[in-house]
Simulated assay, not measured.
Amino acid sequence: MSGKLMFRLGNDLMMTILMLFAIAYYITGNMVHEIIGIVVLVQFTIHNFLNRRWYKTLFKGKYNVRRILQIGINMLFLITMAAMMISAVLISSDLFPFIPIDNDMALRQLHIQAAYWGFIIMAVHIGLSWGMLINSVRRMTNIKGANPIRTIGLRTLAVLIVAYGVHASFEEEIGSKLFIYSPFGWFSTQSTAKFLIDHLSIMGIYIAGTHYALKFIQKQEESPARKTALAAKLKEDK
């Protein structure tokens, strides 16, 4: 695996972890929260720079269901991140206290909801690239060929993560955090370890759901092509 790909994967992994800690405001406190936000902004900028060729291909080639979904999710992720970062600077009390904002309640609400929507969209964004990530891990670990036992074990683990993630979604009231007005944020007394386990499991719902939805869509798109190819071959054989 090339050093560039390793750097890209490392940057994305650290950005994901730091975004989780950024949501845990009650654990980090405001100063650490704002510093993490700056680091995430830098990493997000690096992420987009390394993937700048993707923007150049937006209006080229064919648009199938997978590509339309990818473009839509990527644009939503970009919008939510921009809204979260801009509102963060405007309501900052430690790193940017010199910016005068008289009534910041609306901005605080925008920041909080953009953060939680960004969290969900980020998980879907990862799910869109999950197949590529799996292949990268296989190359790193020199895993070749299929192994039924490994496949069953990993799929069982995925089911358990999703099941716990559904439980954690209700326990964490994710739906309320996405839609209900709360400019002062959401507080909890859970430990850092439980917070990470819960939110990683919640991400697992959307990563797994997106990954397997794409596999289903791909099969549906390949079926007509296979039938056409088979019909053409039968015609040639005649």
Rank of each mutant, 00 (worst) to 15 (best):
Y181D: 03
A83Q: 03
I126T: 06
S2P: 11
A158C: 03
E34H: 12
A115M: 04
T28C: 07
N48L: 14
G175R: 04
G61S: 06
F49P: 01
L128G: 04
A229K: 14
A24Q: 05
T16V: 03
I17N: 04
S188D: 14
M15T: 08
P148V: 01
T210E: 07
G209T: 13
T156K: 02
E222I: 13
F49Q: 09
I86N: 04
Q190V: 13
A123N: 01
F179D: 00
K177W: 06
I17D: 01
P148D: 02
V89T: 05
A115P: 05
S92Y: 02
G185W: 12
L50K: 06
F96L: 02
L157V: 06
I126N: 02
G37K: 07
T16M: 12
L78T: 07
I112A: 04
E221H: 14
F59I: 10
A22I: 08
F119T: 04
R226Y: 05
L200K: 12
V124S: 03
I46C: 11
L230G: 03
W117C: 00
K144A: 05
L13Q: 00
N51T: 13
L90R: 02
I79N: 00
S87A: 04
L157P: 04
I91C: 06
R8H: 07
F170C: 01
M203Y: 12
R66I: 14
R138C: 07
K56E: 08
Y26I: 05
I143D: 02
L5M: 09
R226S: 08
Y181C: 07
R52S: 13
L20I: 10
H125N: 08
R150L: 10
A193I: 15
D198E: 15
R67W: 06
S176Y: 04
L95Y: 02
Q113A: 03
A88T: 05
